[in-house]
């Protein structure tokens, strides 16, 4: 049972099919996240769906969904780069909300700023139409060992 995560991580590292790995996670399916695999980076797409709305009168995406998107992007990037045999555990994450997140598709990417033996520091940014105008930023520490 516990080998299931490791087997899937190893398969994704071997095949590069992080999309399939992501789809295996129920919450990722719930949010509607899809991993787009690029040469240099993974981009995590959160397709707009009505259940992601946090303010119906504006409308705007719920801050929690943006936080979850950024956290997921960080974890996918870490899984791709690190040797970790399990899903990295978030120790702390800080999300800065920069501008309105409209009810449209949102993407995020992450950069591992420091890979330590036990802890990795990751920065992530989320944007909508214009990649140069991020709607939210995050930075966090993740535990990559047991």
């Amino acid at each position: 049972m516990a080998d299931s995560v490791l087997a899937r991580i190893e398969e994704a590292r071997r095949t590069g099919n992080w999309r399939a790995f992501a789809e295996w996670i129920p919450y990722v399916r719930y949010l509607g996240l899809e991993v787009e695999v690029g040469e240099q980076e993974l981009v995590t797409l959160m397709r707009f769906a009505p259940h992601l709305v946090g303010n119906a009168s504006l409308p705007a995406l719920h801050g929690g969904t943006l936080g979850a998107l950024l956290e997921s992007a960080a974890i996918f990037q870490l899984l791709r780069e690190a040797e970790s045999a399990f899903i990295p555990k978030t120790i702390t994450i800080t999300v800065d909300y920069l501008r309105p997140a409209r009810p449209v598709d949102t993407r995020a990417r992450a950069i591992v700023t420091r890979q330590g033996r036990r802890v990795a520091n990751v920065r992530a940014e989320a944007w909508q139409e214009d990649r140069d105008r991020p709607v939210a930023l995050a930075f966090g520490h993740f535990l990559v060992t047991t």
């Binding site: 949010l31 719920h62 929690g64 936080g67 979850a68 956290e71």
Partner: peptide
Amino acid sequence: LHGGAITALLDA
């Protein structure tokens, strides 16, 4: 539970 669900709960 995924951390994202906890994030949404704490934000709300």
